[in-house]
Amino acid sequence: MQFRDLKAQYQALKSEIDQAVSQVITDSNFISGKQVTELEKSLAEYVGVKHCIACANGTDALTLALMAWGINEGDAVFVPDFTFFSTGEVVSFEGALPVFVDVDKETFNMNPDSLEQAIKKTLAQGKAVPKAVIAVDLFGQPADYGRIRAITDKYGLKLLEDGAQGFGGSLNGKRACSFGDISTTSFFPAKPLGCYGDGGAVFTDDDLAADVIRSIRIHGKGECKYDNVRIGMNSRLDTIQAAVLQVKLKAFEQYELENVNAAAQEYTKLLKDVVKTPVVPEGYYSSWAQYTIQLKNQKVREGLQAYLKENGIPSMVYYPKPMHSQKAFEDVRQDEKDFPNTTELCDRVLALPIHPYMKQEDIMQVVDYTRNYINIYGK
Rank of each mutant, 00 (worst) to 15 (best):
L257G: 06
A289M: 02
Y267G: 01
E253R: 10
V280Q: 13
E302N: 14
M233H: 06
V300A: 09
K272S: 12
K269G: 01
A243Q: 09
N261Y: 11
D273G: 07
A289V: 02
L257T: 13
K248N: 04
P278E: 04
E282N: 14
L295D: 02
K276E: 09
Q246D: 11
L270R: 15
I293A: 02
L295E: 01
K299A: 10
T292C: 15
W288K: 00
Y285T: 15
K296C: 01
W288P: 03
T292L: 12
L295Y: 05
E282L: 13
G283E: 08
S287I: 05
N234C: 14
F252D: 00
A242H: 12
L257N: 10
Y267F: 06
T268G: 06
T277E: 06
Q265L: 15
V244Q: 02
D238V: 12
L270A: 12
L304Q: 03
G283R: 10
Q246G: 11
K296H: 02
T292Q: 13
N234Y: 14
L304Y: 06
T292R: 12
S286A: 14
S286L: 09
A243G: 11
E266R: 14
E253C: 06
K272I: 09
D238N: 13
V275M: 03
V280C: 12
V275R: 02
D273E: 13
D273L: 07
Q265R: 15
Q294I: 02
S286I: 06
Y285H: 15
V274N: 07
K272P: 03
Y255D: 05
V247P: 00
W288I: 01
A242F: 12
T268Y: 08
N261Q: 15
Q265D: 15
Y284V: 07
Q265V: 09
L249F: 02
Q265N: 15
L271M: 00
N297M: 04
P281L: 09
G232V: 09
V260G: 00
R236W: 13
E282W: 11
Q241S: 08
N261I: 08
D273Q: 12
E302C: 06
N261V: 07
V279W: 06
E282Q: 15
T277F: 06
R236A: 14
Q265H: 14
F252N: 00
G232S: 07
E253H: 09
A243V: 09
K272F: 08
T268R: 10
E258L: 02
L237A: 08
K276H: 11
Q298V: 13
S287D: 03
V247G: 03
A251K: 01
G283D: 08
V279F: 11
L245P: 05
A264F: 06
L249K: 03
S235D: 03
W288F: 00
T292G: 11
K248D: 04
A251C: 03
G283L: 08
Q294T: 04
R236V: 15
E302F: 09
L257A: 10
W288C: 00
A243I: 10
D273S: 15
S235V: 05
A264R: 01
N259M: 03
A264P: 05
A262L: 14
S286C: 15
E258W: 03
K299E: 07
L237Y: 08
N234H: 14
T239R: 13
P281M: 08
L271D: 00
E253V: 11
Q290P: 04
K299I: 05
E256A: 08
N259Y: 01
V300H: 07
A262T: 13
K299Y: 08
